[in-house]
Structures are given as structure tokens and as C-alpha cells.
Design a protein around this nucleic acid. Structure first.
Lengths: 215, 215
DNA sequence: ACCTGTTCTGTACGTTCGTCCGAATTCATG
DNA sequence: CATGAATTCGGACGAACGTACAGAACAGGT
């Protein structure tokens, strides 16, 4: 049996979700200035009073929308890590896959996630979910690295995630084409992995040779 | 002789600059929603009508503020590249210096620059200055690399800039401490440089050994 | 001292914003 | 069927917003 309360809760949950999704859409299109009570309700196709009924204030609405979005993204990352861990993965596949984490749904969506990370700096309510997302990203990188035989990954996974974030950032400026970015990223990831498997000694040696031979 | 027109132009230039600076301050503190005509004028200590006198619209003001800020940052980067090119630079110094490009004035300011890169994606007026800033960053990295004997830098400078951007991004979330971020970044940069001087063959070799020996 | 064009700014207008409220609706429960 | 708590929603309120403009303030030339 389905009680009224449950039905109502379900309906409320749906409507809240619609509002949050609409808010994210507007945020992606025009930044936080575009997210207003009326605009959100209109985009969601709901009466304009719903936004005030479901959220304490407009800031609350924006915060929750960003939070929900990054949480869902984190969930997808975790799922991705579990699926791929059970499949056969070659090094190139792994590199290619992780290179697409930020870009899989186009640069516009990536901009939202990046914005959330930036907003987290001045919104304590977002800091937890933002750092959790970062950690899931690192966990995904670690899992893929382990799958291709790099274990333990140590700092390597973190550095790879750094590359991914930096790439997502630069993609927003459009200095390089989509193809160039992909090539640059995969090449850099390969270099980092190589340096990692070669070990600190080889790295120090290579750098030392630089110092001795200043051209 | 100083004409009235010149005096006036000078005064206008100063006031415009004050307004732009005030706008950036507000933007850094509360995002674009905090940048309003009245707030900007109040922060700059000028009459509230000045904002409409000097700028066509509020969007124009925000755009110009972000543009001016990133242009100035670019200028500083270029100056930095020229100064350091004339000084003796060791590898570790170079790595340390470039690691500080984004962090020299605290994470709050870095957040503004990152926001500008993101905003550039949906504001064509910012795209030029944003990509120019990226290129100056790469030029700085190239110059430092050349100084320590890595020449030509090729993709290396770009990859290092990617690491810097990714680091600046993650610093906003606070997952790692200031010191950890610095260590992670310098280690990753060293790895990339090492892989670069070792050459593609060594990298391929190292990765091939991974494939053959899946633990 | 007076005039003239430019620069500046206090003020006011209409719009949009965030928020609130009361009446209407819904539906499990008594 | 009556009750009441939860939900829905049109409309309205004051506040803050972007913007426009008439007149004040100013610095020459005469």
C-alpha cells in the first residue's frame, strides 16, 4: 500500500528535482545571475511560487542545485570506476577514458562542474561535496591505473587528475582544438605514468643530466 | 601645456579604473551577483551615477572588469618572463617559481582568474584576452624551461601549464593543504620534465614493460 | 565678470527581484 | 462525511535593481 505521505513525498521529490535541474540549466547558460525564482519555475514548467515553497531562499536554491549536481556527478564517477574495474582495460583505453571524464557531455557541462569547485571556495556548504568529487575522481584514476598494472598509484593518480582539471579549464578558453587537447592530455598522462614506473631514481638522474649539461 | 581635455581624460581614466577595481573586489567576494551599479560605486567611493556614466550597462561593466583584470595579469606574466630570463635560474627555482604563478596572491585572487577563464566560454568578448593569458603562461613556462636547458620545450610547457591550472582549481576545494599542493605540483612537473628529456622512446619502452607484465 | 560647452551627479522612473500570504485543492484519517 | 494537515498557486508587497535625465558644477575663452 502506498500512503498519502509517501505519494506526496514522491511528488515533492520529483518537483524539487525538476526545479534543481532547471536551476542548473540556467546556471550553465548564464551564470548565477540568470538563476532567479521566476526563471527557474518557468524553465521547470511549474508555478512560480513553487520555488519559494521548496527552498528557503534563492541562495539556498542555487547552493542546493550546485550541490545536487556535483553529488550526482560523483555518483556517476564511482559507478564508472566499478564498471571499468571488472572489464578488461588496456593502457590506451584507460588513458582515453579518463581523458573523457570531464568532456563526455560537452564543455558547457564541464563549465558547471568547474564553477562548482570555484564556488566551493566561498561557500562552506559546497566544500564537502566538492572535495568528495575530487576524491572520487582520484579513486577512478587509481582504479584504472591498477587495472593496467600500476599499483600502488601513490601521487600519480592525483597528478593525472590535476592534468584533467587543467585541461577542462583550458578547454573553456578555446586556445586549442578538441583534438589537440585530447592529444596533449593523453601524451602528458603517458609521460607521468612512464616517469612513475621508471621510479624516482631515473627521474632524478634525467634531471641531473640537465643540470650538468646546460646546453 | 596640459589641455583641459587631457586633464579630463586622465581623471576619467582613473575613475574608470577605480570602478573596475571595485567591481573585481565585489566579484571576488560574492560572485557576479554581488556586482551591482550601486555596490560598485559605493565600494569605489564614487557617486552612484558614475557607473552608468562610464559604462553602457552592468553587463558591460562586469565584462570590462574581468577583461581588464586578466589583461593586467597577462602583463605581469610577460614581465615575469622577461625578468627571470635575465637571471640565473636553477631547475628547482624554476619549478618553484612557476608553481607560484597562480598562488602568489592567495587563492581568492586565483579564483577570479579561474572564473574569467570559465566566463570566457560564454562571453566572446573575453575569449581573446583569456586565451592570450593562457599563451603568456605557456610562454613563461617555455622561457623558464629554456633557461634550465630544456629547449625546445614543445608540448612540455603546455602540459606544465595544464598542471598549474589543475592545481589552482583543486586548491579551491581545499582537499590538500598548501604544502601538499606545492609538493604534488613540483613532483609532477619534475616527472614531466624527466619524461621529456628521456624522450619518446624511453617513455614507450616504460609503458610497454607495463603491458607485458600485468603484475 | 560673463558666457558656453563639457563633465558630473542627485534623483526619479519603470522593471524585476525575493518573499510572503490566503484561498483553493488534495487526501489519509477520525 | 467531516476534519485537518499538507500542498498548491495566483497574486501582491516592499526592496533593490538597471537605467535615464535634468540640472548642478566646472573650466576654459571672451
Amino acid at each position: 500500500m502506498v500512503t498519502r505521505a509517501q505519494l506526496s513525498q514522491e511528488r515533492s521529490r520529483v518537483r524539487r528535482g525538476q526545479l534543481l535541474a532547471a536551476a542548473i540549466e540556467l546556471f550553465a547558460e548564464g551564470g548565477s545571475r540568470a538563476v532567479t525564482h521566476r526563471a527557474v519555475a518557468a524553465r521547470a514548467g511549474l508555478p512560480s511560487a513553487t520555488t519559494t515553497y521548496y527552498f528557503e531562499s534563492i541562495d539556498d536554491l542555487i547552493r542546493e542545485a550546485l550541490s545536487a549536481h556535483i553529488v550526482q556527478w560523483t555518483t556517476e564517477l564511482d559507478a564508472l570506476a566499478k564498471v571499468d574495474i571488472e572489464a578488461e582495460v588496456r593502457l590506451d583505453d584507460a588513458v582515453r577514458l579518463i581523458a573523457k571524464v570531464f568532456s563526455q557531455r560537452g564543455p558547457e557541462v564541464a563549465a558547471v562542474e568547474l564553477s562548482i569547485f570555484l564556488t566551493a571556495a566561498r561557500e562552506p556548504a559546497l566544500r564537502d561535496v566538492a572535495s568528495r568529487a575530487m576524491q572520487s575522481l582520484e579513486a577512478l584514476a587509481s582504479a584504472l591505473l591498477a587495472k593496467v598494472g600500476v599499483e600502488p598509484a601513490g601521487h600519480l593518480a592525483v597528478s593525472i587528475v590535476t592534468l584533467i582539471g587543467g585541461t577542462a579549464l583550458r578547454r573553456q578558453t578555446g586556445v586549442y582544438s578538441e583534438k589537440e587537447e585530447a592529444q596533449l592530455l593523453t601524451a602528458a598522462i603517458r609521460d607521468l605514468i612512464a616517469a612513475h614506473v621508471l621510479g624516482t631514481d631515473h627521474v632524478d638522474e634525467a634531471l641531473a643530466s640537465l643540470r650538468e649539461d646546460p646546453e
